[in-house]
């Protein structure tokens, strides 16, 4: 585990410090919000529901993130991608960012994440590039966030119906981008993999997760149980994932059909 310089004890100490920092911040805000929620008269059930639902929901995406860490570990070791995907990083562009950083540091435009980095100098430069390339939001947020939030709340107080529609439209726009990507998105050109372009698997994931979610929503309308509401989304996701694995295992020739690759 510690044989490679990229995975030495010092690197593990850094990731440990990162984990402590991120969890401390989360627990601090969780406590403050919980206290405020009680003051506002939000029921303990609702607050607990938010915790449970989010915690269960986060499980499968977290495993997906860990797999991205593994895919980057050949070139960068386990710890640097682990740090990157615990802070600021995002599963969608971390691989591209890593490739960009590796190509710049090695001065090789064909370099990729399949070849281990063996020079500590290059490794440290990649660490610099990946950090500096992603910290801009952390500089902007303390300066602009309060102004943005104030602007939004001023508009909301003037025309609440319009604001409700615009907020829903913003969420829908975000969801639409992913739905459309699953229906017609291209696969990766730099790191092509089975299932990365729109095809049977992405469509199955969309259809099954939507179908299961509708089923649980209807079930909850009938039974009116808090636990169904909290579990609807994570369970729908898990069942859709199982459906995708089953299709991929038992009908691989159909599963690998991609209309955009």
């Amino acid at each position: 585990m510690f044989a490679d310089f990229k995975n030495d004890k010092f690197m593990y100490l850094i990731v440990l410090a990162v984990i402590v920092f991120v969890c401390a911040q989360a627990l601090f805000f969780l406590r403050k919000a919980w206290i405020r929620g009680k003051e506002l008269g939000i029921s303990t059930d609702k607050l607990k529901n938010a915790v449970t639902s989010s915690a269960i929901f986060s499980f499968a995406p977290a495993v997906g993130i860990a797999i991205t860490v593994i895919s980057l570990s050949v070139a960068l070791g386990y710890v640097l991608p682990w740090i990157r995907l615990t802070v600021i990083g995002a599963i969608q562009y971390e691989t591209t960012a890593a490739i960009g950083a590796i190509q710049a540091a090695t001065n090789d435009p064909s370099a990729n994440i399949a070849v281990p980095i063996t020079d500590p100098q290059i490794f440290s430069e990649i660490t610099w590039v990946m950090t500096l390339g992603s910290i801009l939001p952390l500089i902007l947020i303390p300066i602009v966030l309060k102004k943005i939030q104030k602007g939004v709340s001023d508009v909301a107080s003037k025309n609440s119906k319009w604001m409700d529609i615009m907020t829903a439209a913003a969420f829908i726009g975000l969801i639409s981008a992913f739905i459309a990507k699953g229906l017609a998105g291209m696969g990766s050109k730099t790191e092509p993999k089975i299932g990365d372009g729109a095809g049977v698997l992405s469509l199955a994931a969309l259809v099954f997760s939507t179908g299961f979610m509708i089923f649980f929503t209807l079930l909850n309308k009938k039974l009116k149980k808090n636990w169904i509401e909290a579990l609807s989304m994570p369970v729908s996701m898990a069942l859709a994932m199982i459906a995708v694995v089953l299709i991929n295992t038992f009908a691989p020739s159909i599963a690998q059909i991609e209309w955009r690759y």
Partner: peptide, 16 residues
């Protein structure tokens, strides 16, 4: 390939 689809299961269920 299944974990490749996690994001779509998230947004499929949200979309519902």
């Amino acid at each position: 390939p299944a974990f490749q689809q996690v994001t779509y299961t998230i947004f499929g269920s949200l979309a519902a």
